[in-house]
Nucleic acid binder design. Structure first.
Lengths: 136, 136
DNA sequence: ATCCTACGATGGACAGAGTCCAAGTCAAGA
DNA sequence: TCTTGACTTGGACTCTGTCCATCGTAGGAT
């Protein structure tokens, strides 16, 4: 699944060294980094990359639908590159670790029309919370 | 359902004028205010109430289980006093409005054991997103 | 009814996450 | 190679929330 760079190039995303490292840092499954973590990892390879650039790149990847923003707690948003494979999240209430999970069932189907209040609903996000083995 | 004050008093919550207005502002169903909104409304009745006090009171109401914290977007947390009636949320992606909804089905039951990764899961939170009638 | 004191309120400083902007730099097409 | 519009930079700024020393007061004791 490491063709994120390919896809971006194919879609005409102007490639700069900064954007490349951000995309490389995010590439892969089960990655749930905060913007600051992305910045830290990118800076290991490109020491002068600025926070603003990381935020810009992340924002664009989200707009392009290549990365999903997940706000699991009230803290920093996390960026999930696994956007093409629908899944939900399991979050440790203590340490904040995030795991991708695949529940059975379709939560969207569980919301009857009379509970939609005229909204045009586009997605259902499920967050499971609990303690991970190390925090329990 | 406006016995929040009663319950708090019964539980020995020290009652001050500040705490009273915060509780009164939050009382009721279908209330999803941010801390700043709570502060603004409280200040209409008690002009000199400080932000810190509002945050303190909200934090305690959450600890007491009388109010639930909801982070629907990456922005400010919202406080939901409807904590005794399990429900999920429907959020407008444009204006941020929140509605309580009651889906059928039980998302907790939808997560098979092999998808729990040793976590002791305590809750499942479902957030439906879409455009509300006014924003569509 | 008054006094005491521990608990609560205050506001200002601080911190974390994220946005904005003017000026400088560079990818990529001509 | 040149040109230019798009990208990057860093610092200032905003928003949300926390912390802390000091002051005030709810509510039990007298």
């Amino acid at each position: 699944m490491s063709d994120l760079l390919e896809r971006l190039r194919a879609r005409g995303w102007r490639m700069t060294s900064q954007r490349r490292v951000v995309a490389e840092v995010l590439d892969g499954d089960h990655v749930h980094l905060t913007a600051d973590e992305v910045h830290a990892r990118a800076a290991r390879r490109l020491p002068e990359i600025s926070r603003a650039t990381v935020y810009n790149a992340l924002g664009e990847l989200v707009s392009l639908g290549e990365v999903k923003e997940v706000s699991t707690d009230g803290r920093a948003k996390r960026y999930d590159p696994n956007a093409h494979h629908p899944h939900q999240h399991l979050v440790c209430s203590a340490c904040g670790t995030v795991r991708d999970v695949h529940p059975t069932g379709n939560p969207l189907a569980d919301l009857p029309p009379d509970q939609r209040f005229g909204f045009s609903i586009s997605e259902a996000e499920v967050t499971y919370r609990g303690l991970c083995p190390s925090c329990a």
